[in-house]
């Protein structure tokens, strides 16, 4: 367990370094939902190449890391209904809120954005409540 915190901290520093490079280099906020969403709805057409290349980096690097570290465990459910509902909620929610864990959480809170803090409080509360009800009340997940 203790080693997990250290990996968490190291991984976190790498995530933040990525965000810092993106901000200082391209002047943009590294928010995963915004980068993907702009491609999906066409609002980011003028920066489409940059977005696709960024996502390719996110996709490829874990495959390289897996050659050196045992990190292939995802524990993802294979319940299709659960995946579809979760995916829809994440897609709709992040676009309506205009950000997710990376944009509002990492990038927003680190510049002391009140919107970042409020979004983070609400998605963590909603996630915690969802877990409490589905796991401990209903025993579904």
């Amino acid at each position: 367990m203790q080693i997990d915190w250290i990996y968490g901290l190291i991984g976190g520093l790498l995530i933040g370094t990525g965000g810092a490079i993106y901000l200082l280099g391209n002047g943009r906020i590294m928010g995963a939902s915004g980068i993907i969403g702009g491609l999906v709805d066409g609002s980011g057409r003028s920066t489409a190449m940059e977005r696709i290349i960024f996502l390719a980096g996110v996709f490829i690097t874990p495959l390289i890391v897996l050659q050196f570290m045992d990190r292939s465990e995802t524990n993802i459910t294979n319940n299709i209904m659960q995946l579809v509902i979760a995916g829809l909620l994440v897609g709709v929610g992040t676009r309506i809120a205009n950000g997710c864990t990376s944009g509002h959480g990492v990038c927003g809170m680190s510049r002391l954005s009140i919107r970042g803090f409020v979004a983070t409080v609400f998605y963590i509360l909603a996630g915690g409540l969802t877990m409490a009800i589905l796991r401990h009340v209903l025993g579904w997940i």
């Binding site: 995530i15 370094t17 965000g19 995963a32 960024f54 980096g57 996709f59 390289i64």
Partner: peptide
Amino acid sequence: AGMFFGGG
């Protein structure tokens, strides 16, 4: 940036 993010 994407590689740092994915690696992290």
